[in-house]
Amino acid sequence: MFRELFTPQLLRATIRMTTPIILAALGGLLTYKAGIFNIAMEGMILVGAFSAVVGGYFLGNCWLGVIVAILAVLLISAIYGFFVVKLKSNEFIIGIAINIFANGITVYLLRAIFGVKGAFSSPEIPGLPDVSFPLLDKIGILNTILNNHSIFIYLSWLFVLLIYILIYKTPLGIRIRAAGEHPKALETAGVSVSKIRYITIILNGILCGFAGAHLSLGYLTLFTEGMSDGRGWIAVATVIFGEGNPIMTFAIASLFGFTDGLAFLLQGLGIPDRFARIVPHFTVIFALFIVARRAVLKIARKKREVIRKET
């Protein structure tokens, strides 16, 4: 079974499963860096996925679908930003409310617009294009793993790089980090913290829109109720875990993507579907546990060292 599982197909599935997580997590880490603990990504992905289908179906073009997705998520983000930045409401409560609202409104509109319950698929929904690199198909295994993925998979890699540069190498980035670490220092330096936070919320909205569009148009062209299926939450865990560093976050997202891919392939091997689907969740908890435990042990060890040295 081991050999059946650890094939290039697994890596290919990993890459595929990582993409929606990393797209949302990149957005989440921007708000995290700016001092907002954003847990609304789950709902934003869902709204993105739904509106991408609506846009794509009625406008007949997948990119118009993506644009509709972004606009819809930005609308939700505007609500989120108004509450969290302007009214200074509890981020946690607003995040939960947005998630539940997203769940309700997408199901409601699915019925209202398409008249169906559960899922909507149609050949008239345009899918996002796959990209094939001409030289890669000569190299068998790399071709299997890396080539002919949906376009957002490659874009997400680009975004990781861009966001890394944004955060650590640009004036906006230094302001974002200051907004999170010591907002008053930024405000007294003459920069509006609220403005910086709004910017990160907007960027997060765009990225969650991409994540949603990728989910509904990138692979299969359909929308199902609750389609984000916990990916937004896994993105939250990824951000916490990666401490807001895009490269680390990408690595962690890949780990979660790997377990997702594993679950997907396990189902194909006759493992009860439900057990397979437990794997990613427990991996997240376990991974978080390892990191937290290491931090605790590190402190304990440092304490012992100081005590030994000084007494």
Binding site: I174, R177, A185, G190, V191
Partner: peptide, 27 residues
Amino acid sequence: HFMLVPSFTVSENIVLGHEKRKNGILL
């Protein structure tokens, strides 16, 4: 209470809010 970002370097703190750019984009 000082308005300095603890994890930033001295020079980053000094220019914060009035940063100079190179190539038009980068810090």
